[in-house]
Every structure is written in C-alpha cells, then in structure tokens.
Design a protein around this nucleic acid. Sequence first.
DNA 1: TCAGTCGGTATACAAATGTATACACCCACA
DNA 2: TGTGGGTGTATACATTTGTATACCGACTGA
Lengths: 214, 214
Amino acid sequence: MSVITGGKLKLVQAALKLATERSNLTSLGLRELAREAGLNPNTFYRHFKNLDELGLQVLGYIAGEMKAGVRELRMVAESSEQAATNTVAFVYNYFLENKAATTVAVRELYGPSPILRRALEQQLNASAREMAEDILDRGLIPRGLSEQTVQEISHMTIRYILFRAMDYIEKPAQREAIQQETERFINRQFRGALLDHLSNDELDALTSGLAETD
Amino acid sequence: MSVITGGKLKLVQAALKLATERSNLTSLGLRELAREAGLNPNTFYRHFKNLDELGLQVLGYIAGEMKAGVRELRMVAESSEQAATNTVAFVYNYFLENKAATTVAVRELYGPSPILRRALEQQLNASAREMAEDILDRGLIPRGLSEQTVQEISHMTIRYILFRAMDYIEKPAQREAIQQETERFINRQFRGALLDHLSNDELDALTSGLAETD
DNA sequence: TCAGTCGGTATACAAATGTATACACCCACA
DNA sequence: TGTGGGTGTATACATTTGTATACCGACTGA
C-alpha cells in the first residue's frame, strides 16, 4: 500500500501548494520544490527519478484524497431524502476543503502532459460511472431514462461541477448562486432528457399550457 | 486599431505555439520565445515591458480571431433553419481551426494569472450574452423561457462547449459523437428549463404517458 | 541634409537551474 | 559488533535565464 511519508510527503505537498498558487505541475522547478519543502535540492533524487514521476505521485495523492471524499459523500447521501440539494452542496464543500487538489486537477485535465491527462480522465470517468450507478440504484431520477442516458448526463455533470468548483472556491460571494445554478443544471438535464424523443411540435403540444410565471 | 505585425507578431505567434505544446502562457521564458520567433532575446523589450504584457497581447490576438469567427458564425446561422445542428458543428469546426488559441484559452481560464483569467472571463460572458440575444431575437427556442433563463443556459453552454472542444480537437474518432452529445446537452437544457417550475409530482403526471423507447 | 525614432543585434553579467560526486547520520539486522 | 541501505546534506559546475548597456541600419519629417 506504500503510504507516502517523511521528505517524500513534504515534496508532494510542496508541489501541490506551488502548483496551485503559481502555475501547473509540469512547470515546477526542482530547487523551488525543495525550498518550499525545506529540504536540500538533492533530496529530491532520493525519492523521484525526475519531475514527471513526481507529477504522477501527486496525482495518486490527489486520487486518494478524492476517493476518501467520495466514500464520505455516499454515506451522507444515503441518509438524506433531498438528495440533489444536499449532494451538490456537499460536493462543492468537498472541493472547497481540497482547494489545492481541485485546482491542480482542473489545470492538468487539459494541461500539457498526456500522461497526467489520461490519468485524470480515467479518474473522472470512474466517478461518473459511480454517480450513474448511485442514481440508478437509488431511484433518484424521473422514471423512463435509459442507463446510457443517465451515464451520459453523469459524465457531463461531473465535468461541469469540477470546473464550476473553481469559481465556487474563488468567489465566496457567489457560492450560494453557483450551488443553486448547478442544481438547476442537473434538473434540467434529467428532465430535458425525458423529452428527448419528442419532436418540436409534440413538445409544443405538451407544454402549451405551461408558461414561466416568475 | 493598431494591428500587430513584424517581430511583434512573430513573438505573439511563438507564444501561442509554445504555450500550446508545452505549458501555459505564464510559464514561458523570454529567451525561449525569442528563439522560437527567430529573434534576438532583447528584441522582446522593443515590444513588451514584461511577460505579463505579452500575455495580454496574446489574449487580445485570440479575442480578435474569435470575434471574426463569431461574425462568420452569425452569417451561417442566419441562412439556416436547423440552427442547432449546424451551429454546433460550425463552432467545433471553428475551434478545430484555431487549435492553439482554443488550447491557450482553456488553460488560462483557470490558470495562475488573475489578469488573464479576468480578461478571458469577460470574453466568455460577452459571447454568452451574444448567444442569448441571438437565440431570443431569432426565436430559436421553445416559447415560455424568460430572458434570464436563456442567458443562464447560454452561459453554461458556452463554457461546456469550450472545454469539450479540447476533446473534439484531440480525439478525431469521437468528433461525431461529441457533436451529437453537445446537441443533446443544449436541447435538454432548454427543454428541461420549460419544466423548471414543476414539482416532481406534476412532472410525473405530465410525463406518465412517455417512456424512452430506444 | 540631418536628427530622431523604430526595430533589431552583440556582448556582458549576476542569478538561478538541473545534476554529479562525495560525505554524514540513523536504523535494522547478521 | 559491524555493515549496508535509506534519507538527508555540502559543494561544485556547466547551462540557462532575465536584463543592462551599447551599437547599427532604415525610415521619416523638417
């Protein structure tokens, strides 16, 4: 299970910190890193062959944190009726408490290193599958949606929330609004999907009695 | 109107190229840049005070390209009935033809420089407003949605498409799928919004006759 | 014709970087 | 008891970086 400790942990955490406040993982300097970790530059080589290897370890570290978060998330959701609202709030709060990891993930997802990108994408896909499973198992959504549709929407939602989390983190005044907006996003996706197979005319017929009242 | 030419243009294009293939704008080196542009390092100072200023110019350059694209886009959309499909295809194609600018935009939107981020965000917000206006003016969406709702959905859609464009660019085999998925995304948002003010029970009643058939 | 500005170059230098080599301490284990 | 590996340090060095100063040709306007 090789848990990271000591100087190695210091370096990984330093990387996370520096990548957040200055740039991305792949453009960190070895000496810069050692300085932040309070170690001698050469100590780096005791733990990593090069900077790429460090990057992968950092992602592994992030993945570990995220997994713990998701597990906790499931437990909270389990004990709640108003799943959508509470889950969205919880997810954002989770990102807020893992600001550095979230920032790095967002930046590396479309960053310059193919290795890191692929690793992150798989992580996100796994989360989407899990979310879809969860939704289906617990019957949280309107009836009548195929598994494939739920998966697709989960996939979109995960990505949407991840990016939105950056604004959530950095604009405290808008947190409430972002959270509500995200709930609307999710609801619209699922509800809209119920109407996927309707033509525009059929849609008109169905909704002719409705008009937005606010 | 100060159009960029000569050595300055070479530097801006070099920045775009290097930022795409290696990292982000803010981590470029002055000498690296000059080398790529085939110029003496000190020539940089003839055009820019520092690297931040270069970054802003690059964003301006990108914004210019984007604006031209949007104008062209409007003309295409004008002459089409099936607006959604053609527009989505056109937008992705536009990103494809401006790969470097798109990549840099995605990376800087949540990158380390607040200045660049703010500039980009304003650019995106302007695009969203324009999209919303366009949709409302031309009556492209189901009746019954407030202007505010259309704006919100435009906002979400612009961002969604921008990020999705990265996959579109880099995974040719998936382009068709991404395009269709995006169309579903947009339709679901607008159609789902029609049902915003329904409770879950009302929704059940309305859709009880419907079942996904594919 | 000539002075001035613009875009570009050459040279120089202090600072920072990645890395190699050699040394020091601690702990396990034979 | 000693010996070997894991972790950290000190010193050194070639390379690269940002930037300062000075020089050069072309174009422009008086």
